[in-house]
């Protein structure tokens, strides 16, 4: 069973601690985020839903497929990792990823991508975003385990062709197809998210 994240959007109130914790742990340059909290706005219905998302370590990762220098590999546990030294900054991975998960560092001219805190996991620790969330709304691990982390969490695996390994807890009227619209934008408008809140 591959690894992946689970998120609880029902209890997330958009504090972005996960985003900043990830940045502070891995990157030196401000504004370069491997995890981002997207604001999903309903054009019909009330309010904003916050979706914290990094790399979903897809079964068929497009970043790996399109990278012209072979900087990406998929480990046996399913983690998609980037050899940062190989990156030439072409941004092909960002454009090919349905969620635009890789992030471009303008000052360095290269791209970074979440590896699920591989270094921390090697040391027996959890990813930084997981331990930093004040509401415990992010989990990481084998999918069969994280699937149980939140009651009623559903996989978005079959909503996008790349097979993202992400479980989401949401209110019953949330259409998982809305995840197709979560791309590089910080704010996403979807048709209707009645029942999200």
């Amino acid at each position: 069973m591959p690894v992946g994240f689970a998120i609880n959007t029902v209890n997330c109130f958009g504090c972005k601690t996960c985003q900043l914790a990830c940045e502070n742990t891995h990157l030196q340059n401000p504004g370069v985020f491997m995890r981002r909290v997207r604001e999903v706005n309903a054009t019909e219905g009330p309010g904003t839903v916050f979706v914290s998302m990094a790399c979903n370590h897809c079964d068929d990762p497009q970043c790996l497929k399109v990278c012209p220098v072979g900087a990406y590999t998929k480990l046996t546990d399913g983690t998609v990792v980037q050899d940062h030294e190989k990156c030439i900054g072409c941004k092909s991975c960002i454009m090919a990823c349905p969620f635009h998960a890789p992030t471009f560092d303008e000052s360095e001219g290269a791209t970074y991508k979440c590896d699920g805190c591989l270094d921390r996991r090697s040391a027996g620790l959890l990813p930084q975003c997981v331990i930093s969330c004040p509401g415990a709304n992010i989990q990481f691990g084998n999918l069969d385990e994280v699937a149980q982390a939140y009651d009623g969490a559903e996989s978005i695996h079959d909503t996008v062709a790349t097979g993202p390994n992400l479980y989401v807890k949401h209110n019953e009227n949330l259409d998982l197809d809305d995840f197709k619209h979560i791309d590089g934008r910080e704010t996403v408008d979807v048709g209707s998210v009645d029942g999200w809140l």
Partner: peptide, 9 residues
């Protein structure tokens, strides 16, 4: 390219 020097790769 952000890093043109690596283009030959």
């Amino acid at each position: 390219l952000g890093r043109p020097a690596g283009a030959l790769q």
